[in-house]
Design a protein around this nucleic acid. Structure first.
Lengths: 363, 363
DNA sequence: TCGATTTCTGAAATCGATTTCAGACTTAGG
DNA sequence: CCTAAGTCTGAAATCGATTTCAGAAATCGA
């Protein structure tokens, strides 16, 4: 006689507690148990309590797959960030998750490494998972991605930018306006010879591109348009900030103000300036963008733009929760950034204009 | 014959394409379509291709809820980190996600803010979601958490530590041994008056606690046990590193070496030392732990311990993938850390012993 | 007290994919 | 040429919770 394969699959030893088990123990129908869990207010209080007790006794937790299948909603949201290595994204994701968690949602996370193809793949995977909402970063997305979202008819919101094309709502700051304001501030200080360090290498990094445009526009308006050699492109590493500054000062030794599109780059630039024996801000003013924790602790503290990352994360969560529930939602939310004037910026040494320090908004 | 499906954005709810629709179009049964998708090799090639064509035509994607319900597997893993604000965790999570993604898994993320109660809640929520595996951080977990995991019989692995209690497998480094080695290195340089700055405020931060123990043990073994006032406890912020150093030097002005359990603290300490006019490393050696990006760019570059965060993330992913598949898995994986000797550490000014710099392993 | 509401509960259908079981068809062997 | 072995495919049961529908019980008004 042939023996049956007795190799017990080890995955399913524990017979999972089902709603029916609870129902039997409590002498009610599964329907009632379900109601206790989902609409407690329509069940008679004493019955509700009795059922609840048995639910706790048996440590029953409902099977989310079955639940999702029947109800059509997963109570799950996905987010795709370029990378988690940037504190500003990590902070936003953390706030997003916290807020979602409060509302009973769980967060899928994925990263694209600034690669639109990868972003599309991850999105595809998330949609197959049946997510109820999706959070993206930035405004640069292929049309494939947009049509995928549309086809899945999943609520979406993009973050860290003030607006996005294709009818996608956004929550974030106006990056261009922020650097324009920063540039104007430096102009007012009396600077005339500028340099810019921008992490615009990644094709999909529209934030930094917008920031660079803000710089260019402000300087053009002031009659001081940047020459190509006054703009050094970099990726988002600290080391590139160093080499960028060196290159910039090689081409334009008389530069008095360097505007970076990222704190990381600015910090790298400051490190290099120190190494080159240039006093900041006496000989060289340097500004950043993001206001990472370290910015305020630098020597000298870094002038930068503060981005409300946590608020962006929370706002994105609220937006999706409402959109999923069918509540009305704003088309876009523009959050205020904050120019943080610290001591890495000052009037240039050779300035003929009087110093005007009254503008400082920080400290 | 068959025209491409025109995406009609009208109508709020796009009637989802079901396996039955594909079956009807292809003139087969739903069972066959399912087989094509899950076990392509057992379907006659020409039939398989025909079905595949229709699957693509209709842009069919299977409902993951129904799939999970029937199969009992979600192809989903969850991770709970203390916070994402620390680059070292963000890096690990990113690596984890990337590796999981390659294997068709999706990652749920949650954070505990170093609060065991929150960790338990988030875990509960993840288990209800039916995750197939779970990644934790550190060895300090309540017994409730362990029993919850056991009851759900979900594969688990904890990270950033070399071992954890309760039969939970771990992947990470031996934190205590790392700081012990670091301390011994400073002892060899000739230091005798030490101070320690440790972020041991959070109850669940066993990593830093182990690191502190490593320091204490090494110094005790050398006959130089730390007095309580030589240990300053802090949280994980840069600002606390500053104030901690100030306090330490107030109590013990003659300190020559400060060992921090975190780069963030060390960087704060360096900033404060500079402000106080203390030369690093001439008058004061400072060391950190983690080797964050900035550490190498400091002035002077920071001596620290490099933690293989990405490797930990990848390793955790591999572990779970195997465990879920029922493949054999190691009980624990101890990864090598790397002492990175940079210039923030040097022999003390008053040292009588000869300088021994040959130990530097970095650069 | 009796019928009319209102409130509450249970039986059963349902969500969509997977998989067992058995039957249909094909190929091989004698 | 016919049975035996092997290959594929489809019908139908199943996963577990939700929800509709209708009936039972309780409350109310007259």
């Amino acid at each position: 006689m042939d023996k049956k394969p007795v190799i017990a699959p080890k995955g399913r030893q524990q017979p999972r507690v089902k709603i029916e088990d609870v129902a039997r123990k409590a002498n009610v129908s599964p329907a009632t148990v379900s109601r206790v869990l989902n609409h407690p207010d329509i069940v008679r209080p004493e019955l509700r309590d009795r059922v609840m007790r048995h639910i706790n006794d048996l440590a029953y937790t409902r099977d989310s797959a079955a639940r999702a299948l029947k109800s059509g909603r997963m109570r799950t949201v996905g987010v795709i960030v370029p990378t988690l290595a940037l504190g500003i994204f990590a902070e936003g994701v953390e706030a997003l998750q916290n807020r979602l968690s409060e509302s009973g949602y769980t967060l899928f996370i994925a990263n694209s490494q600034y690669d639109q193809r990868r972003e599309l793949q991850e999105l595809q995977s998330l949609i197959e998972r049946g997510i109820d909402g999706i959070v993206l970063v930035g405004a640069s997305h292929g049309r494939e991605l947009r049509s995928l979202i549309e086809q899945a008819s999943v609520p979406v919101i993009t973050t860290y930018v003030a607006k996005a094309g294709g009818g996608i709502p956004a929550i974030g700051i106006d990056n261009e306006s922020a650097t324009r304001e920063m540039t104007e501030y430096l102009l007012r200080l009396g600077h005339v010879r500028f340099g810019a360090i921008a992490n615009v290498v990644a094709a999909s990094n529209d934030r930094s591109r917008a920031r660079l445009e803000g710089i260019q526009r402000a300087l053009s308006d002031a009659g001081l348009p940047l020459k190509p050699t006054q703009i050094v492109k970099a990726d988002y590493s600290l080391a590139q900030g160093r080499s960028a500054l060196r290159q910039l000062l090689t081409d334009h030794p008389d530069t008095t103000a360097v505007i970076c599109t990222t704190d990381t780059l600015a910090i790298g630039a400051m490190a290099e300036a120190r190494k080159m024996g240039l006093a900041v801000p006496a000989t060289l003013s340097i500004t950043g963008f993001d206001d990472v924790e370290l910015a305020a602790q630098m020597d000298p503290p870094l002038t930068t733009v503060s981005v409300p990352a946590a608020e962006i994360g929370r706002g994105a969560a609220d937006y999706l929760i409402n959109a999923i529930a069918g509540s009305p939602v704003p088309r876009s939310v523009v959050l205020p950034y904050r120019l943080v004037m610290r001591s890495s910026s000052a009037p240039p040494r050779t300035s003929v204009r009087p110093t005007r320090r009254g503008r400082s908004r920080d400290q």
